[in-house]
Every structure is written in structure tokens, then in C-alpha cells.
Amino acid sequence: MNKIYYKNFKKVELENNYVTGTCMEMCPEAELKMRERERLLHPFEMLVGTERDILPKADKTRTVKSFSRSAAGKLTPDPRSLRPPDILVKTVSYLLDDVISRTGVQWRVIYDFVMDRLRSVRQDMIIQNISRQHQINILQPIVKFLAFASYKLCEESIHDFDPHINDSHLQECLKRLLCMYDYCDEMEKSTDGDEHEYSDESRSYFEALYVVFNLGNTTAITRAVNLPNKWKNVLVKRTVEMSLARSNNNFVRLCRLIELLPPLLAALAYLHLPSLRKDCFKIMSNAYSSKNLFFPVAVLQKILLYNNEDEIVSDCNYYGIKVKENGVVFLKTDFDSKKPVVSLKRRSVVLDEKFSCLDISAVILSCQ
């Protein structure tokens, strides 16, 4: 699959029919004036002091080009509406530093704004077919933002945050990023000397993130196993071990390894716990099936990384499993395997405490 992507990129590059952007601001002048006129400015973009005016003014230093689908039949975009690579990098840094650091605003509101503006950045990036290194520099923080959002907003209502849409964008960005890595590998192999030697300290982190996001997926495991040795560090090897543990239903080992991950990767791994717990309950309902045996709730809480015993009782009741005297009574006749995975996702109290001590902007924009 990766070679196909590489060949497609190479073929497109040879055609060389791409427009080079000339807009040196985060938002083109024409769009800025139109959005002022049509009252389409986001509160984050309004000039301080004009927010309550009939027509609020745009703050040029904070207004960012919004996402819009390409008009049908329009073959050549206007260069004045496209931002060159350096401006795209600047825009990403602004969104993921200044904007997501805002206080006094619900995070889902911040997410909606940043998500839309990052889609516009990706659109400009693809239309211009900018250099691979610029694409890597842009995609890496976007991937981190989407990964953090998937955890941060997992408890929100579907009306406020759609995890499926977010995951779709995350997977798309991850795959494109991996294709850029593969392209650089191919270029390094095809040249003699060190002129095109590629080095990126953060690559291993994103290779590991891909494995965690696709936990138990054989394609992700195969990719990680076949990576050049210089990218297979301890973190990549650990996530491969996790993915194999998921495939083999080794729940205890998997959960122990999750606790060893960096916070952002651990947060992404936590989103797999609902399905993992269901599979674990199913197996235990067969392996420990007995009316006279009680499996301690406290032990199960520790093994499956629940925040508290009440969450275990809630999940057990959902799947038809009885809980008596602080013990779970596993019976294969009680477990309702037809029930879908618990839709309610819960954030980890331990992880939330870790994130509260971190500068999220720094985590997202850092090289690791």
C-alpha cells in the first residue's frame, strides 16, 4: 500500500501542474472582507472592542482562513487565496499554541474552530503539493491535536463531538504522514552519498502512535515490524508488543504496557478499553464460570484500569454479569454477548492529573 502511495505521489510530482500560493497572511484579504461583510467572523477572530458592533471588525493577526469545499468546475485556484508553506506552518503554530491555550472557553468550542482551520491548512497543502518536509512539519502537530481531542472530548455528547469524524481525519492525516516518511526513505535509498539522508527524531513517536491508534490491526503491526532499524526504538517495540497482546487477548499484559506509555499515547490507548473490557468479560465468563466463585472487584479494577469500582459494577450490569459482596460472579449463561460495546467512554483520572500538569500546546508542538 505504501509503495502505491509513493508511486502516485511521484507521478503527480512529475506532472508539475500545481499552483504556488502568494497569500502572506493567515487569511486572504478577499475572504477576510467577505466574512466581515457577511458577519461570518468567529469570536476568536474579532477585533477587541468591536465584538458587539453590528459588523464586527476582523483582527488580521488572529483571523484564519476557513475551510470550504472546492467549487465545482473551478480547475485552477487563485494563488492569492493560497498560503505558501511557511505561512501554513505559522498558521498551525498559531492555532495549536495561542488558540488552544485560551482560558474561559469550553474546549469543544476551541476544537470546532481549530479543527475547521486545520482542514483549510491541509487543503492548501495538498493543492500546492508542497515539499515533503513541509508536509511532515505540518502534519505531525495536527496528528497530535486530533489524538488529544479524541481523548479530551470522549465524554462529550455526540451532538457536540463526533468521534468517528475525528478518527477519520486522524487516520487520514496519519496515513499521509507515513507516506511522507516512506517517500523520504525511498529517496535516501535511491541516492548515493548523504545529500538526501533523512533524519527526524520524532518519527518513531508517530510510528508508535499509528500502532496504538490501530491496536491489534495486522497491517499496523506489519508496518512497525518492517521499519528500518533506526526507527524501531523502545517505544515502537513496546506498542507492537501491546498490539500483539491485544490480538492474543492478553489483557493483563496490555494494560500494564499502557501505563508505561507517554501521556498522549496512553490517552489514545485508553479509548480501546471499552472493547477490550467486553472481550475480557466474555472470556472470564467462560473461564471462571461458577456460582460459588467470586472475582474481587478491586482486583478487576486494577487489571482493567477502571477509575473506581462503580464503573465496573455499571459495565457488569450492562452485560448481565452479577456483582455480589464486592465480587463478580462470572457465569457463561449470564454474559450477553449480543450487547454492543459500552458506548460510554470515560477519561482516566490518573491521565487527567498528568495532563493538568502539562502545557498541552507544548506537548502537541514538541518533537516528541
Rank of each mutant, 00 (worst) to 15 (best):
E309C: 08
E309M: 07
E309G: 04
E309P: 04
E309V: 07
E309F: 03
D310I: 04
D310H: 03
D310E: 07
D310P: 03
E311S: 11
E311D: 12
E311Q: 12
E311A: 13
E311C: 10
I312V: 13
I312K: 02
V313R: 13
V313Y: 04
V313G: 07
V313P: 06
S314L: 14
D315K: 14
D315Y: 11
C316R: 04
C316N: 08
N317V: 05
N317A: 05
N317L: 03
N317S: 06
N317K: 03
Y318D: 06
Y318T: 05
Y318R: 04
Y318I: 05
Y319P: 10
Y319C: 06
Y319H: 10
Y319A: 07
G320H: 01
G320T: 03
G320A: 05
G320P: 06
G320I: 01
G320W: 00
G320L: 01
I321H: 00
I321P: 00
I321S: 00
I321A: 00
I321M: 00
I321R: 00
I321N: 00
K322L: 11
K322Y: 02
V323L: 02
V323S: 01
V323P: 02
V323W: 00
V323E: 01
V323K: 01
K324V: 14
K324N: 13
K324G: 09
K324T: 13
K324P: 06
K324Y: 14
E325F: 09
E325A: 12
E325V: 06
E325P: 06
E325M: 10
N326Y: 06
G327A: 08
G327L: 01
G327Q: 08
G327C: 08
V328Q: 03
V328G: 03
V328D: 03
V328E: 02
V328P: 03
V328C: 05
V328R: 01
V329H: 04
V329N: 05
V329E: 08
V329Q: 06
F330W: 04
F330L: 02
F330I: 01
F330E: 02
F330S: 02
F330V: 01
L331W: 00
L331F: 00
L331D: 01
L331A: 03
K332D: 10
K332T: 09
T333R: 05
D334K: 11
D334W: 11
D334Y: 13
D334C: 12
D334M: 12
F335H: 02
D336Y: 04
D336T: 07
D336N: 12
D336M: 06
D336V: 04
D336H: 08
S337P: 09
S337L: 09
S337I: 14
S337Q: 14
S337E: 14
K338R: 14
K338L: 15
K338F: 15
K338T: 15
K338S: 15
K339M: 13
P340D: 06
V341G: 10
V341N: 09
V341C: 13
V342A: 10
V342C: 10
S343I: 10
L344W: 11
L344G: 08
L344M: 14
L344P: 05
L344T: 12
K345C: 09
K345N: 10
K345E: 12
K345P: 07
R346E: 11
R346D: 08
R346M: 15
R346C: 15
R346W: 13
R347D: 12
R347Y: 08
R347A: 12
